[in-house]
Design a protein around this nucleic acid. Sequence first.
DNA 1: ACCCAGGAAATTC
DNA 2: GAATTTCATGGG
Length: 272
Amino acid sequence: MNRLIFEDIHALSLKDTLDCGQSFRWKEQENGGFFGVVKGRAATVHTDGDRLVIDGAEESDRAMWAAYFDLDLDYTAVKEQLSRLHPVMAQAAKYAPGIRILNQEPFEALISFIISQNNNIKRIVGIVDRLCENFGEPVGDGVFAFPTAGRLAALEPDDLTPIRAGFRHRYIIDAARKVADGEIDLERLRTLPYQEAQSQLMQITGVGVKVADCVLLYGLHRLESFPLDVWMKRAMATLFDGMEPSVFGEYAGIAQQYIFHYSRNHPEMFSS
DNA sequence: ACCCAGGAAATTC
DNA sequence: GAATTTCATGGG
């Protein structure tokens, strides 16, 4: 089996990165590794000291995997910069210092975060699994790629009954059709001014500000994005004294992910 | 029998 | 226009 190794990797925890609600396709294994599919390539990943090991990956995909785990960004420097802005920010970054923002496929992020609305993470994972099993290309033994926009665009909302996403079926189909027919060019959103990219995504039925921000952050690597879900709104109001997200600057999205994870794992901070 | 879930659309005021 | 209700589904 082919194996890719990345040396001298710091500030990367696969557990915290792959299981913090930004991706829904990685499964932790008995041995502590994670199995997932990216761009139709199935792989198992684990860390060994300061090495990142990707089993089942081709050498020709080295750049793709490096980009996926955002290995070229100095997260230690980003954390130091963010932590200076607010003591709670420093606390959140210290709680899970190995979180990174993945470079996911734009269409997968779009559909995944449409599914995420008014939903819980466990159920999101189940729906995404069923979406891939039913409509994704098989890439191995019981393993499926994320469905293409073209494949989903040819379906009707009722065809999604087996994935059990309820009222979101028509949102998924609308998104797939707008992407498949070129009405929305996801790749172009990487370079558009932020507000323009956001409003383009919001032309899709079922995509509001929050889902658009998630697509821009997790699918198009717009690190300035700062998705405000219920947890983040609570955190900003009660922990950050109503601080403006813009204060976090060009890496606001990374700050957001630390704060989100920290908040979700300390719900008692908000209940009493 | 409730209530909630990484929201957004539809309806009502 | 702003506030409220509804939207499938599943788990606690």
